[in-house]
Amino acid sequence: MRPLSIIFQGAVIHKNRLCCDVIENIAITRHHFPEDEIILSTWKMSVLLRQRLQESLKPLQIVIIENEDPGPLVYREGEARWVTNINRMIISSREGIGRATHTEVIKLRTDSRLYNRNITYFLRHRNEEEQLYPRDQAYSLFRQRVINGNLFARNARGYMPYLFHPGDILLAGNKQDLFALFDIPLADESIFEVCFCFSVFSLMRYVPEQYLWVKYIEKMTGVSEFPGNRFSSEKLKVTSEKFYINNFVPYSSEVLGFLWNKYSEVYKNKGLSSVYTTSDWVMLHHQQSMAVSAGLRLSQKAGSAWIFILRTILWVKFSPLHISFIRRLAIKMFSRRT
């Protein structure tokens, strides 16, 4: 297989100290990818911390990029604050991918790692997959489908039905495609909006994954396909699905040999059953090829009943948040963990 470029994007400093976990993640990944290019795209730091970082990574032959830190965007409601690092993700990803010297790249975060070479199998067999599952050119925006680690790749018909929401934790594909995906305008405070849509509650019109994808679609097509998290309809769901299956293919972390400890340690694996699996993706492709069987329709109806129950539970849970005082209290208690 041709050599790869692996981009780690994100922070390496925690409380003014070099984060040992980041060094470990890079070292373990390097062990399994000894001949491939590894790029660390992070933020400008002090001379002392830069020296320590360079010394730690020198044996691993890592390309280090220091970017200007755009800082977070902050939602404020009274004394409550909600932080998103969306612009940090966009800049560090774009600059890291742009520096890559190989045609195929893998983008992951500094708080994650690859612990085997499984992902190379899927990169190597993408042409066969394209033949087995032909793409609808009307919805195909990448040269080839991008491999998508399915953490946070929300199923539009699941119990947390965020639309236009691919996962952004792990992406792998052609350099030109991934660079273009992150080569979008930075977000501003207008991204914040209190949104309720049955089982969806968000303080953002577009959460980071949505903003990335919606703005890329808009750049490529000239059309704003999704007005934000206050909206949902059958037409929007179908459009979201078509753009997803023709541009991404989801795989689990276990299948890809990928580890992101934060998902289990901080998020406690919540929402894992609301994301696309590879079998969901195959089913969607067959549905949109008009090849779905009667038996499959029956199983879908049974699943839909359970999803409706879960969505109703979330609706009950989120209903008190319509009251601003309770919402402010909830933000203070459960503000974004970074």
Results as ranks from 00 to 15, higher is better:
Ser224Gln: 03
Ile23Thr: 15
Glu209Asn: 07
Glu225Leu: 03
Tyr139Gln: 06
Arg328Leu: 07
Gly257Phe: 11
Asn87Tyr: 06
Phe179Ile: 03
Ala27Asn: 10
Leu171His: 05
Lys107Ile: 10
Gly71Glu: 08
Ala80Asn: 11
Ser199Ala: 15
His165Leu: 03
Glu79His: 07
Arg88Glu: 14
Ser190Tyr: 04
Lys219Glu: 07
Phe248Gly: 00
Arg336Asn: 15
Leu53Cys: 10
Lys301Tyr: 12
Asn174Thr: 13
Ala294Met: 10
Leu163Gly: 00
Arg297Ile: 07
Pro59Gly: 08
Cys195Phe: 02
Pro250Gln: 05
Val282Lys: 14
Ser112Pro: 04
Tyr115Ala: 05
Gln54Ile: 09
Arg154Tyr: 05
Phe198Leu: 05
Gly222Arg: 10
Ser293Ala: 07
Ser335Ile: 07
Ser190Ala: 11
Val105Pro: 01
Tyr159Trp: 08
Ser46Glu: 14
Phe226Met: 01
Ser224Met: 01
Phe201Glu: 07
Ser324Trp: 03
Tyr267Ser: 04
Arg336Cys: 11
Tyr206Arg: 00
Ile331Ala: 02
Tyr251Ala: 01
Ser240Ile: 00
Leu114Thr: 02
Met333Ser: 13
Leu48Asn: 13
Asn174Trp: 14
Arg117Glu: 12
Tyr216Trp: 05
Ser190Arg: 07
Leu18Gly: 12
Tyr139Ile: 04
Arg154Glu: 08
Ile65Thr: 04
Pro208Lys: 03
Arg117Gly: 06
Phe192Pro: 00
